[in-house]
Design a protein around this nucleic acid. Structure first.
Length: 291
DNA sequence: TCTGGCTTTGTACGTGCGTC
DNA sequence: GACGCACGTACAAAGCCAGA
């Protein structure tokens, strides 16, 4: 997800010990908030003293860092050297992933909110179970395994409790790679967007909008691990989908190249291309904003 | 040279929002 | 409520480029 540039910020053992001893050094046995921030920044994120001072000047403590959005990083480093910003951003994103609070942009939260809170006009895909609102059914009977093919039930590698809180953003990095039908099931059940897809997929073919959302989730998952996508990977995703959802047609998601088709087709490849374009535009935008 | 992946470009469609 | 506009997304195709 962070491209090829990975900032390794795991403390070596001596530093980890120092970190632990310093954190435990408060007068009342509890670390002071400002100390927390300094220790986190210097020994965990390994950013510069100037960056720590920048954070302190903005009254940002550890709690703020836990809630910080990626847009806030841009604001924080406005007018500052780009290098410090890059180092902080990469270490910050990695830290947030590790503590289970992956950093999101306000925009992406807005997008997901739009998906998970459909307007009445667009609620057709959420009201497919005999007139009962699907969202309500999800709350009352979320036992996906009961309606999945037996072969898929065997794949349950992960206890999904704790990933179904609905509000917490999903870090796909914690899932198995490469994807299997079981992984796909876990990914979907851990996501408020994926749960309606699982529920609907049990009963029959997915609506157009749910198919698009399914493709979006899979591509998000893919792009957390790799920036490129290959034909075998696309075929694997289509296989996972059709294994998990027997009512689905693989051609909806992946159409291989052929004599009459120069490029792959289907919603997966399409979504991948559009996501790459979006990310590129976002990168160009943030670069221009810092210059 | 061929193949596969990526970029760019264009079209179509759906949705949200403001205006009348 | 109808309409127009802006925007996002899906999809297809041409062309470019790197590696085998």
């Amino acid at each position: 997800m962070n491209g090829n540039m990975t900032v390794k910020c795991e403390p070596i053992s001596e530093e980890a010990e120092l970190f632990n001893s310093l954190v435990a050094a408060g007068d009342d046995g509890q670390p002071l908030p400002q100390q927390d921030l300094r220790f986190l920044c210097l020994y965990r994120l390994k950013v510069t003293q100037e960056t720590v001072e920048l954070l302190e000047a903005q009254k940002i403590d550890v709690e703020c860092l836990r809630k910080m959005r990626i847009e806030d990083v841009d604001v924080l480093f406005e007018g500052k050297p780009l290098g410090s910003k890059i180092l902080f951003r990469e270490a910050f994103l990695e830290w947030r992933d590790e503590i289970g609070l992956p950093c999101q942009s306000i925009k992406s939260i807005g997008d997901r909110k739009r998906y998970s809170e459909p307007s009445p006009a667009s609620s057709s895909s959420f009201d497919l179970l005999g007139g009962t609102p699907l969202k309500q059914q999800l709350l009352t009977s979320p036992n996906w395994d009961e309606c999945l093919p037996p072969a898929v039930q065997l794949f349950g590698e992960r206890d999904a409790n704790g990933q179904r809180d609905g509000a917490a953003p999903v870090s796909y990095r914690s899932f198995q790679w490469p994807m299997t039908p079981g992984t796909l099931k876990d990914v979907l059940s851990s996501s408020p967007i994926g749960q309606p897809i699982l529920a609907r997929g049990c009963l029959g073919s997915l609506s157009k909008s749910l198919q698009y959302q399914l493709a979006a989730i899979i591509i998000d998952y893919h792009m957390e691990f790799e920036t490129k996508i290959t034909t075998p990977q696309l075929e694997n995703y289509a296989y996972c989908i059709t294994t998990l959802f027997p009512h689905e047609n693989a051609q909806t998601y992946h159409i291989p190249r052929g004599p009459n088709r120069r490029n792959p087709g289907g919603s997966l490849y399409s979504r991948f291309i559009n996501q790459k374009i979006s990310k590129k535009a976002l990168a160009i935008g943030s670069t221009m904003a810092t210059t």
